[in-house]
Amino acid sequence: MSIIFDEIKEAVIDGDEDLAVELAEKVIAEGLDLVEAIEKGYIKGIEEVGASWKTGEAFLPDVMMAADAMKTGMGILEAELAAQGGKEHEDKGKIVLGTVEGDIHDIGKNIVGALLTAAGFKVYDIGIDQKPEAFVAKADEVGATIIAASSLLTTTMRAQGELIEYLKEKGIRDKYKVIIGGGPTSQKWANEIKADGWVETADEAIVLCKELLA
């Protein structure tokens, strides 16, 4: 039984999404313990990749592909778990991530998403060019406490401020921690729009999210 969990772990480490899916289906077909498969397979795999990232052995393609394999494979087991009425797997915190309205850049955001996933957070990426409403709708749906908004252009940065204004108008500003990032942003900009946090790199985003959820 533990052999398949090892296989799942290896599939995640190899960033093999197809295999991660195949193995998830096998776990269900054979009626194995879903939570055990998640924890000993998918989570264990991504933890190992996260550790190699920290020591500088793994690079972005390694981590991002591992995160994809893990999310897709684990997603199948989570859906099954929900269908069976089982208890949700416990994560380190839920984060809604997206690029603000008017901006179509997504690579930086995707990197942050992958590294946060590798660090044990549950990341919901809503994509590029997203209105404040979309961030909030997703955060409500999944019960996220952190909203992370990305922007690469000096001309779209202000949409990060508009997201915060929107939360204030709706009277739900205190419900979320809003963090921002992206090329032209800075701590000064974060202070100006009263964001809860700003960091320059994806690695620092992990530290920031841990602090905010502590």
């Binding site: 500088g56 690079f59 972005l60 690579i107 930086g108 990197i111 790199t201």
Partner: peptide
Amino acid sequence: STSAITDMASG
């Protein structure tokens, strides 16, 4: 052209 490479440790 301004093509260049990605630093694979930070993106």
